[in-house]
Amino acid sequence: MDRREFLKWQLISLIFCVIGPRFSWSFPEKGSKVVAVKGEVSKALEAGLKELGGIKTFVSEDSRVVIKPNMSFRNPPEMGTTTHPEVLKALVNLLSATRPKGIKVLDNTLTDPDACLKNSGIAHALKGLPVDLKILKSKADYQEVKVQGKVLSSLDVMKDVLMSDIIISVPVAKHHSSAGVSLSMKNLMGLIYDRSSFHYKYDLHTAIADMANFLKPKLVIVDMTRALTTNGPSGPGEVAIMDTIVVSNDMVAADAYVTSKVKWYGKQIEPFKVKHIKVAHEMGIGMGDLSKVEVIEKAV
């Protein structure tokens, strides 16, 4: 390589570095698909993923996977405030069959971490499985990143998340008295250090959409085995047994679908009444209009 060639390559790489990040890869996935499968958890999950092309379309041998369940409350699974441990167990079993580089289950819980893990049954269910179950509450585990959002300009995201290849958001279907619903988008707030500023600094809903746009889980699994329809997010409230697992490649579509399926406070509520779903749809993060989403409902 002579000097001229060296300089030429330098110029090319400089141009690439400057222009490259300007391109946005965040346009909505083509063909948003929501699969809702009724039945026994592990079978339903497998059947749902099969409709999306199987777990291997999302996770390969080189992937570092982050699973974000909702385990922020020190309540038993029956109360519907945390993701059911069976769902996580089934998911981890499926994932570990593809032998990814690492599977991490992460959260920044609202209350005492040990009590959350114990009472939600998640620590027990994941015991012995090849996962790294971590609750990170120390600032040192987070790194500030710049985001170009409508209201957010920076976020403190878990370092483990930044180093991962795929985030799988595994929320439980529940009501949230500030955010309307707490589903796959709201669930992602557990990967952020400073959540309270979402409440006091910004409009909560727009902040959720901004954050979801940055984190962008490629796969969403909503635990709709039961849904907390009132008095969310901490409960206790009415719990509707629904025995359904919702799998999707589009978090906005999944959240819209679940919102439309559950009767919140006994009412049928349109997805766009949840402001963060509406904002996310308008920002083009995903497809919130269910008429344009391919919805598959089945039972196993």
Partner: peptide
Amino acid sequence: GLKTKGLATGQEMPPGFE
């Protein structure tokens, strides 16, 4: 005593929704 189950309020929409 501990929190009891929340009941539907008289509002137009449940808390949190537009």
